[in-house]
């Protein structure tokens, strides 16, 4: 299992569009992926689950990937969050 702490930098936070993009991208991977934020742990492949976590701009989140392609998944997650979903 791999874990990484990240900072959400896009102004709208992980809301509808960014969360949707993130969930769809994560769904391409085999491994299980979770987002932890302020005591809640949600399925990163589900847009609705991500929305329930209320992740704002400036929120710190922990991404957890567990499975065969966990490293690839983590790299993609880091890339997406750090890009601020610009140009996607």
């Amino acid at each position: 299992m791999v874990r990484q702490k990240l900072l959400v930098i896009n102004p709208e936070g992980l809301h509808l569009r960014p969360a949707g993009i993130f969930a769809q991208e994560m769904d391409r991977f085999e491994c299980e992926i979770f987002i932890q934020h302020q005591g809640s742990k949600v399925n990163a492949k589900s847009l609705l689950s991500i929305l329930t976590a209320c992740i704002k701009c400036g929120s710190e989140i922990n991404i957890e990937c567990d499975g065969i392609d966990e490293l690839d998944a983590m790299n993609r997650a880091i890339e997406l969050i750090n890009s601020g979903f610009e140009g996607l």
């Binding site: 509808l16 769809q24 589900s46 847009l47 689950s49």
Partner: peptide, 16 residues
């Protein structure tokens, strides 16, 4: 238009 497209994203949520 993103709000409506968001409805499509929601509907594609495998959990839902």
């Amino acid at each position: 238009a993103e709000i409506l497209r968001g409805h499509l994203l929601i509907l594609r949520d495998p959990v839902l």
